[in-house]
Write a protein that binds this DNA or RNA. Structure first.
Lengths: 337, 337
DNA sequence: TATTTTTTTGCATACGATTGCAATATCTTC
DNA sequence: GAAGATATTGCAATCGTATGCAAAAAAATA
């Protein structure tokens, strides 16, 4: 039942070579003759031998494990990102060890310590709340980090985000061109750079057109608070005729409030624009106009940046921003008349 | 920059004790005097020492790593499950290493081999396609496996699912009680036990009431095929007045086709019932009547079963089924008149 | 063929922990 | 205070692999 573990020593014995020879056969770039290589390979195949990654990591100092810190998966941008990240790393011979950073599961220190316990080669932080502090500590410990979808002002931290300022600007431009007069904004968690930049871009672009924000509420990237924010904004005496919501998840909630609780028509009475372009945004029930975050491109950049840092420890940190298009759908009207 | 790694030897030196003493302090249940324990702890704290999990695993034979095999995350039941699983295991001192089993990323053998390379202590398979074959191979290798949301007829494999037959029956009972006359079914991938059992329960219960299936299409748990299936079913000469869709994800797609492509009213002309109760199901835009899978309960059972198997290798495999309630919402009418 | 250069090979050690065993220290008990 | 029982401690081996080094083999050169 409990299959015996095959080690390189046994393979060596069967192949009639030394243990080091076996090791070399499985180490790319080591010096072994063709003949030995074949003998070892066939012996290994016969016994079903594969090198023990953990034992190897002990001596090489690399575990080929990447710590992925995630906070909450109810934003549907993350599942997709996790899938793509894991796949991309898998192709490079790395694997993803998941660390949940929920409020319940302890604080940053615990997560950080646990990651180091596993000797992770690098860290990808997609967690809203703790990315900055975590990144600082990882840096201090010499473990490369890339922030995913989360930036810091600190130039020493690598980060991959969409170009959130640009995205915010596109939304403002689009809504103004559509003839909207009273623009509202439902904000995400204010500690997040994504939130801040989206809002900055949105407001700056409005200013260029001599406009200012008509209403603003705080949704905190959170289902319950977003619902309250939408209710407050759209039960006021005068309501916006367009609202930009800081991510799709909250935009869906806002749409539900606007249409089903308050009986307003989208887009006739209110236009709604989101950010992320998660799959649900394209479903007809929402048909949400939104700024696309190119998850696959973000993932590609994240992985290549991280691996570069791992393989060459003196790689300089970089901040990468990826522009995404505004995807125009039915939740916002295009022309006023 | 690259912080030096602290080992137990250095702690021992600082504390003025032997290296084994340090090890014992960090090994629960080992024999150490109070005085030494304190000395070691303070030395360890001063140096920031933590035991290397990988080195430990080499000698103990346990890595405290659980392999999680997932196929596709576009069914929103999985992100939630992954989050809960990871959290629950984290609490028990284990961590989750993710293995994507997408079509692109190679076949079962690759995934299986890679998992063994990392010396995983156990495996949770939530992948539709490969769970059975994978489970057989893990069993042969002596690595405990629990299938999550996926059962096999093979009694030797542990599995945790919702009680899908019961769920199917509940749906039939509910739709019949609601006065529906022409019941349709959109099936999931037929290799999946979840699909099979939901259909079996649904049809058996209908038979008890002297009814039979009015229409059936195959959606394969897949966005594109589900859309086609819905179109076909609801553009026929005579259409069902109620449809049970094998999971929520496909149910949403069916609803979109029914309402927005074909202009039919839900629930007045067609009632729709799904399975899973993912968060989106409760959103007013869908307001989907569905059978709840108690993800947290399923996760609890999965984790405790798996850990039991790991800690006591001669634990017998079990199949656990968890009943879930039918959550009645607005997508299905309750009474015919 | 003899010599030099290059490639292959095995030996032995190291990585950072755990653990059986024997030695030592501490505690009981008389 | 001595003898026996018990609790601590350190030594040394071990887990499975990688790798520097020197010896051996093969290839290249003269």
């Amino acid at each position: 039942m409990a299959a015996k573990k095959i080690t390189s020593v046994e393979v060596a014995k069967l192949a009639g070579v030394s243990q080091s020879a076996v090791s070399r056969v499985f180490t790319p770039g080591a010096s072994v003759s063709e003949r030995k290589k074949e003998k070892v390979h066939s012996a290994a195949a016969k016994l079903g031998y594969r090198p023990n990654v953990l034992a190897r990591s002990l001596i090489t100092g690399r575990s080929r494990i990447i710590g992925l810190v995630v906070a909450y998966l109810d934003n549907y941008f993350y599942p997709e990102a996790v899938e793509l990240l894991s796949n991309a790393l898998q192709k490079k011979g790395y694997h993803v060890l998941v660390f949940m950073a929920s409020k319940t599961a302890g604080n940053i220190d615990d997560v950080f310590d646990e990651m180091l316990d596993y000797q992770v080669d690098g860290v990808i932080a997609a967690s809203v709340a703790m990315s900055s502090e975590l990144a600082v500590r990882c840096n201090a410990a010499g473990v490369p980090v890339v922030l995913f979808n989360r930036a810091q002002d600190d130039e020493r931290l690598s980060a991959v985000t969409s170009d959130n300022i640009d995205g915010g600007q596109k939304v403002a431009k689009f809504l103004i061109a559509g003839g909207h007069k009273r623009l509202g904004y439902i904000a995400g968690w204010e500690g997040a750079s994504t939130q801040r930049d989206r809002e900055v871009g949105f407001i700056e672009e409005m200013k260029k057109h001599g406009r200012s924000l008509f209403a603003r509420e705080l949704g905190n990237f959170n289902t319950g608070e977003a619902r309250k924010a939408a209710r407050k904004m759209f039960t006021a005496k005068e309501i916006p005729d367009a609202v930009f919501v800081a991510n799709d998840h909250m935009a869906f909630i806002a749409m539900d409030v606007i249409r089903f609780e308050l009986g307003l028509k989208i887009p006739e009475q209110v236009s709604v624009v989101g950010y992320d372009d998660v799959p649900v945004a394209s479903w007809p029930a929402y048909d949400l106009t939104t700024v696309r975050q190119a998850a696959n491109q973000m993932v590609t950049e994240t992985v290549s940046l991280l691996l570069e840092c791992i393989e060459d420890q003196k790689t300089n940190p970089r901040q990468i921003q990826i522009k995404g298009p505004l995807i125009v759908r039915g939740s916002a009207k295009i022309s006023n008349k």
